[in-house]
Design a protein around this nucleic acid. Structure first.
Lengths: 320, 320
DNA sequence: CTGTTAGCGCCTTCAG
DNA sequence: CTGAAGGCGCTAACAG
């Protein structure tokens, strides 16, 4: 008990005893067992669970960094798990994290099934959805201005005169995919232009598939004059495709195809990409920080009883 | 007790009772408390601690991914903490992780002080050092072939005739910095060439400082004809500097400075960098996987009593 | 200022 | 096959 008191701050302990305890603790390398500690009612575990699709994607890595920065200031640590876009893995991970007594969860959800995060599965653990949302979910969420960003970018392409604009997107079950496509379509509607249906390719999961999809479109009869790449993996593939083709063209003394590219999400070296491009830029680190703050406001009670909140972070259009 | 038995696999429970328990468990969303579970002697916590400098660096993010891939197969989860290259933070993080009963640690150490990871601070928790080592540490380690890689690259530069080769490196207290510089020097020695002392810049912590260091060197009287960039952050800065200068030169109708660049660590888009470069390539994901395997071999007892092991992963030289 | 009691949720051991 | 006892490490509440 005396040791416990010393470690809790040393109140109501005779200075001599306190010093003695401190010395012995450091000599023995004693560490109090945080798990046993959090077993007692009213004690928090100090763990925040983060479920993302893939830490190898720099986008999510930066998000993790944002969350880590904010929660580490409150002495909490983050438990990281990868869902690999697999709803079943997502469910297991959730259950595991709840079992490990996480105080809160920051999640990039895989699908749209609200049952995964139903209240009885969450066991009262507050949840913040990040980057993607689940329409029917009853949770705080931080999103990017997907719709407005895609809308603005597409409007620019249309006003530049492009009529054959390709849309390369990810799975439509992912809310970012839906929302970015919605913005793309809305801009067409607004300008009274019919989107080129044959140029809308969805379900692209990685850079490699985006690259071959792009090649295929450019090899078609009526190739696009502009491309909207709906996320950073897709942009990567598109840039690879365009750059390879430009190299080949130059080697054969042809003029390279000029394709106007708009990319959602920025990435390192966007400013020195081998092809000209415009970017719908935003900060995944800020997204992580905001998500963490929403979560903390549920934990410290400052958002007591509030309705689910939705924050949309702004985007910036940048030309390179 | 019966519920505990059902959750442990349902041995020695009447099927009817088992089914009933299972139904009620899923109805109520009951999760067994993993922390309480690990309180019992002989039970493992299922947590692995990862201490890295910065998750936002794609290099470390990929390392985390490698570790996650391997340990998640054993049902374990990873606790991630950032040290921000701060030895004090590193110590606190270590203590926190040990207190949270991590079963093992994968660490990219900040400095060279072996006291940080002294046995009494580790409390018998196995430690694997990754990417960097501490010479005096008594722990398993996975490194890249820093010395050989830097040696080979420098030898190539020297045989190409370069005599003014700049070395842009990070802090010399970091083992990768030491080792890569050692390889650089060894190649010079081997060829009987004196390294250009005025071109060796150390202590570069980020891309921005590397960029300005590069600019400064190129503006000097006796500018380097080749550059060795000792890690991915530094390469980024150097590429930015070179590319900016090339753009400016072209705008002024001058020939851009031709600087031969060798970069340690690869990065996305290395193959389409705006300046020609060669890369000492290796796979941080593989580094993470290997570190995790070393750790697991300590946990399952298969490396029982073995001396600390040191694994050096090979590098590949790639021209772009 | 210091120590005792009790109970957090779990599972090993033993009794029925 | 099922349940009761006990203890893992910790700290709130109470006693001294």
């Amino acid at each position: 008990m005396t040791v416990s008191r010393v470690l809790a701050g040393g109140k109501n302990v005779r200075p001599a005893v306190r010093e003695h305890v401190e010395r012995v603790v450091s000599e023995l390398g004693y560490h109090r067992n945080e798990n046993a500690r959090s077993l007692r009612p009213g004690q928090r575990s100090g763990l925040i669970g983060m479920m993302i699709t893939n830490i190898g994607n720099p986008y999510y890595a930066e998000m993790v960094q944002g969350v880590e920065q904010v929660v580490s200031r409150t002495g909490r640590r983050i438990l990281v798990g990868a869902t690999n876009e697999d709803p079943q893995l997502e469910g297991q991970l959730l259950s595991d994290f709840v079992g490990r007594q996480v105080e809160g969860l920051v999640v990039v959800p895989v699908g749209q099934d609200p049952a995964v995060f139903a209240p009885e599965r969450l066991n009262r653990v507050p949840l913040v959805l990040a980057s993607r949302t689940i329409d029917a979910a009853n949770a705080d969420a931080v999103l990017i201005s997907d719709i407005a960003g895609a809308h603005d970018a597409t409007r620019i392409l249309l006003t530049e005169g492009h009529r054959r604009i390709a849309f390369l997107g990810n799975k439509i079950t992912v809310s970012t995919g839906q929302r970015r496509l919605a913005g793309f379509r809305a801009a067409h509607d607004e300008q009274g232009v019919e989107p080129a249906g044959d140029l809308i390719v969805l379900g692209l999961q990685d850079a490699a598939s985006a690259q071959s999809a792009m090649d295929e479109l450019l090899d078609g009869d009526d190739a696009p004059t502009a491309v909207f790449a709906a996320n950073n993996r897709i942009s990567t593939g598109v840039i690879r495709a365009l750059s390879r083709r430009a190299d080949r063209a130059r080697a054969e003394c042809r003029d390279p195809e000029a394709v106007r590219l708009f990319a959602f999400d920025s990435f390192e070296f966007a400013d020195m990409a081998p092809v000209p491009l415009s970017v719908i830029d935003h900060d995944p680190r800020e997204l992580g920080r905001t998500a963490a703050q929403l979560l903390l406001s549920r934990l410290d009670g400052s958002a007591e009883g509030q309705e689910p909140r939705l924050i949309e972070l702004p985007v910036t259009l940048v030309d390179h």
